[in-house]
Every structure is written in C-alpha cells, then in structure tokens.
C-alpha cells in the first residue's frame, strides 16, 4: 500500500506561521481571557489547515478529525476554561516569573532551536511545506515554555494545550494525520486530561485559596 501523496501548498505554511503567532500571543498577552481566545483562534487555524489538507490529499478521514477539532478544541475546551475561570473567580492578570520582553526573547531562542534541530531533516523534504515541522516543534516548545514561566494553574493548562496543538499540526502537516482510531484516542485523552486538570484547579482553589501554584511547594527535599 505504497501511496505517495504530496500536498504542496503555500497556504499551509502561512497557516503554520499564523499558528506560531497565536502561540506567541500567549506569551505576550497579559490577560488570561486573551490567552484562552488565542487558544481558540489557534485551534481554529488548525482546523482550517486540517480541512485544507483533507481536501488536497483526498484522505477523507481527516475531515472527521477536522470536525472533532472544531467541536472539542474550538468550542468545548475554551468554554470549559472560561467556565473554570468564572467558577474559580480568578483575577484576570497573567503572572509570570519572567518579564514579557525576556519571555519573548526566550521564545525566539526556542524557535531557533527548533529550526536548528530539524535542519538536517528539512533539507531532504521535497515539499514546499518546509516550515511545518520546525514550526510545529516551535509551537510545542513555546507552549512548554509558557508552562514554565506562568504562575497560575490555568495558564499551565493553556501551555499544555499549546503543546498539543503543535503536535496535531505536526501530525497533520507531515504525515497527514494519524490513523483515525489513534486520533480519536488522543482527542479523548486530551479532553479527559483537561477536565481532570480543571477539577484540580478547582480543588486547589478550594484548599489553598489561590491557584497560584507557586504555593505548591510543600513537597520538597
């Protein structure tokens, strides 16, 4: 079953860069709600990219993925996050360990690393979508970086979601999606994990009276 499908679309590259920008928005914004919006937007771009790839490649099960992405990532999860923010009553400011400028600089560095590490790979890439792989790695890493620098529990969830977006994009752009059952499993896991994390954000708020997880330092050596 050797079937070479080559999707060559400049559009995908552009969408990739847009996703990266949305991720950097995470870093640069000071408001929590903006972050959630940024996530929703990025997920939407992801869904678009997914749709385009499904269309271009003719692998129609990717449409299913697109649909699920739209439902879960663009609607349910942002809604859930807004619900949590409201329920827990978090102050809207994002608190960070690093200043915004420094965070931005660091994320630039991280993006460079992503390009650097993938350089030997993208040399051999025959398609025009040379930026997809490094950018998806970059999104993942920047998401990771957000998790490190942000104090609040909810921002960590957002960082994690950013990482996951990076993954999905990588899967889509490079391999045109994973087998459907895997995709479904992954979506299910992400949903459940976000819900569990949400529950814990709530519980932590209840017990610690703050969701600044800087307070979670009791367990140490």
């Amino acid at each position: 079953m050797k079937q070479h499908i080559i999707v060559n679309s400049q559009t995908i590259d552009v969408l990739a860069v847009m996703m990266l920008i949305a991720t950097i928005l995470h870093i640069s914004t000071g408001r929590l709600t903006t972050c959630v919006w940024a996530y929703a937007i990025r997920s939407f771009i992801l869904a678009c990219a997914s749709g385009i790839i499904a269309y271009l490649s003719g692998i129609y099960h990717i449409f299913i993925t697109t649909g699920i992405t739209l439902v879960i990532k663009v609607v349910i999860i942002p809604w859930f996050l807004f619900y949590i923010i409201k329920k827990v009553g978090i102050k809207k400011e994002v608190e960070s360990f690093l200043s915004f400028t420094l965070s931005l600089l660091c994320s630039c560095g991280v993006i460079l690393v992503a390009y650097y590490a993938t350089e030997p790979i993208i040399q051999f890439e025959s398609t025009l979508m040379k930026h997809c792989l490094p950018i998806s790695i970059a999104i993942t890493l920047v998401g990771f970086f957000t998790m490190i620098t942000r104090k609040k529990a909810i921002t960590q969830i957002l960082g994690l979601l950013a990482m996951e977006d990076g993954l999905f994009f990588a899967a889509l752009s490079t391999s045109y999606g994973m087998p459907l059952i895997v995709e479904l499993g992954v979506f299910f896991d992400i949903l459940v994990s976000v819900i569990i994390m949400g529950i814990y954000v709530y519980r932590i708020k209840e017990t610690f009276e703050s969701i600044d997880i800087g307070f979670l330092k009791e367990l140490r050596e």
């Binding site: 993942t140 990482m163 993954l167 990588a170 899967a171």
Partner: peptide
C-alpha cells in the same frame, strides 16, 4: 493535591512530548 497536580502536569507534558516522538516516527 499538590502531588496530584505535579503528577498530572509533569506527566502530561512528558507524554505530550512522547506523542511528538510517535508522530515523528510515523513521519
């Protein structure tokens, strides 16, 4: 709760990275 939070955050991050590895293998 603290332990659970650390557990889920760190492990999920790690597992997410692993998924990236799976995707790259696939690729």
């Amino acid at each position: 709760q603290e332990a659970a939070w650390k557990y889920i955050i760190i492990c999920t991050v790690g597992i997410t990275l692993a998924l990236f590895g799976v995707i790259l293998t696939y690729h």
